[in-house]
Design a protein around this nucleic acid. Structure first.
Lengths: 343, 343
DNA sequence: CAACTTAAGTTAAACGTTTATATTTTTGAC
DNA sequence: GTCAAAAATATAAACGTTTAACTTAAGTTG
């Protein structure tokens, strides 16, 4: 087994210097076309593949994209990471034919994720960072901006300076879903939402209030719950709210896991969907079509934003301006239930 | 902003040579304890963190663990990667306080995954490989063994030479579940299983046949289905099998996604769980407790095997023998339904 | 106390790249 | 043909680390 070829091998083989080889491989215009071809031929013949640590040492380029995920407790809640996971796949997919790889950095809290980011930036452990789970005021975003470090968020923030982001159009989602419920005659609409430190939770709550107000309905804070979007959360909240004197007739869930929890609560308490109450949700895994019963959702396959996340990252690394790299996706309403309460 | 400290900085600061600094940082015995302490102090004071590409260039150590995942089409089936995803989390978690990182390599077919592995090995792009989804005869495993490249599989193989692996005890799972169903009076038990090229599918089918035979029941090939373990697969198979003249009264599903699909089929066709048929499943996300109705499962939280996967990898890199690094987990039966058909 | 061993450090080279600078070759004008 | 300018290629240093080989100082032994 011969040792793996380096530019030195190619240089020896072609009788040229390593400098010329390097330039040829990087497509520099200062090497004659015919010599470039010769070099590329030999490189291919030898099965040459560049040594990333050599490049990295010299240029600082790591060819790594750090993906930060915050999971409070990976052991307790097995469903937890599912959403993030799909993100990783989409991004990996886009980077497939580039020299970039996705590297996973896992934090158990916001603070820890900030520390991790500081270390990545300080030690140039990656060329760029992908950050899901943005907060309204996000110190991490401010930090990366201050350090001029390339990053794309999945989610908006209230940053002074524009940054690259991808997100779903949360306001639209909420208005689509809540307006539908109102049109179907619902007056008591519960919203099971994520933690309010997250930007998208705040956006959704605002849109929820606005939509109610536009329809002349009163906002009732007891119908809004915030927490980790798990099935457990959905079920607990259903148990609580269904005991109210004037319980909700519709549950609007921020994801499928939560919706599944509410449906589970229905089953436990003998509720029937469409008779006692209905569930509607935001959906990115399209698994709600297999619920019993299938529920109406606002669906955006998570592969879409995650692909764009990867594309934006590549463009960012190519020097494109962050303010040009912003995209909001509008999900489709998928009607699977009438969502009208039968008398 | 001062440039990040290197061993040179530490050397200058302490008045020692870079060689001594390097040795001290690596805990070499040929440096006096007090000088070592001094060096470590200065290193901490400066916030020194080793430059991995420097190390890699010199030693060949990449500090990367490659995680190979095969997903036929990341776009179509959104549920697909969920299982793998949890694996990544568990492994990342174990490696958290080590210099190792998990790097995702995604393939769309067995062949492509083999190519990827060849490239990783040939170009030493990682220090070790974690390979889920093993086949009965797995060329990739043979290749890595021939190349003496460290790897741990999630799943068994029929390899000549022993290798490091983690897996669930598939035979036990099947006998636990199928014996239970038989004890509850079921005679027609369907098995919804993964593709037969996968080792665990074969093991499960063998155990299934054996358990039936031990109970004096006849094996009926039309009650066994193989395919991608998605909700869609579960539902389709239910639709087909429920039309048989002598349809199954129990569906044993190889994972939760498939079980969800069967339950969805129940709902569509007006089947009632416990009256018309029952569903039982292998479970690693513990989400089946939120199904409507919750079903009985053989549960092993995926965080467990994935943790051990990471631990085994670290031990392997520490020079431990692969044949010492083998573990089978036996799941717990979680009874959530009587699984007896009422008359 | 000479002769040797051991301990603790140092020096310098090497890993695979890129790139500023230097050198050689080619080109074009006269 | 000569000469300068332009184009193509070569030389060598640098990135941060480890490590074989070497040096020096300090013990140990008979």
């Amino acid at each position: 087994m011969s040792p793996r070829p380096t530019i030195k091998t190619i240089a020896k083989e072609t009788g040229l210097s390593t400098a010329t080889v390097s330039k040829a491989l990087n497509g520099s215009p200062q090497v004659r076309p015919d010599t470039r071809d010769k070099i590329l031929d030999v490189a291919k013949k030898l099965g040459y593949e560049m040594n990333l640590s050599g490049v990295q040492l010299r240029t600082g380029k790591t060819h790594q994209i750090a993906m930060i995920t915050v999971i409070s407790s990976p052991h307790d809640d097995e469903w937890g990471g599912v959403g993030y996971a799909q993100l990783v796949y989409g991004v990996s997919d886009v980077l497939h034919d580039t020299p970039y790889r996705v590297v996973q950095y896992q934090a158990s809290s916001y603070e820890e994720s900030f520390d991790i980011i500081k270390r990545i930036v300080a030690n140039r452990k990656a060329d760029g960072i992908i950050l899901p789970g943005t907060r309204v005021k996000d110190k991490r975003v401010e930090f990366m901006q201050a350090q001029d470090f390339p990053f794309v968020t999945y989610g908006l923030t209230e940053a002074e300076v524009p940054h690259a982001y991808v997100d779903t159009h949360n306001q639209r989602i909420v208005s689509i879903c809540v307006e539908r419920l109102i049109a179907k005659g619902h007056k008591r609409i519960a919203m099971l939402n994520a933690d309010m430190v997250l930007m998208y939770s705040r956006d959704r709550e605002n849109a929820y209030r606005q939509t109610l107000q536009d329809a002349g309905l009163k906002f009732d804070p007891s119908l809004v719950a915030n927490g980790e979007l798990t099935p457990a959360f959905g079920r607990e909240q259903f148990f609580e709210m269904s005991m109210f004197d004037d319980p909700p007739t519709a549950y609007f869930c921020a994801n499928e896991a939560t919706a599944m929890g509410v449906l589970s609560g229905f089953h436990v308490r003998g509720y029937e969907h469409g008779r006692d109450a209905v569930v509607i949700a935001t959906d990115d895994l399209n698994v709600s079509q297999y619920f019993s019963p299938p529920i109406t959702t606002c669906y955006l396959p998570i592969s879409k934003p995650s692909q764009v996340l990867g594309e934006f990252m590549l463009k960012l690394l190519n020097g494109e301006a962050p303010e040009k790299l912003q995209k909001l996706f509008v999900p489709d309403l998928i009607e699977r239930s009438s969502d009208e309460l039968r008398k």
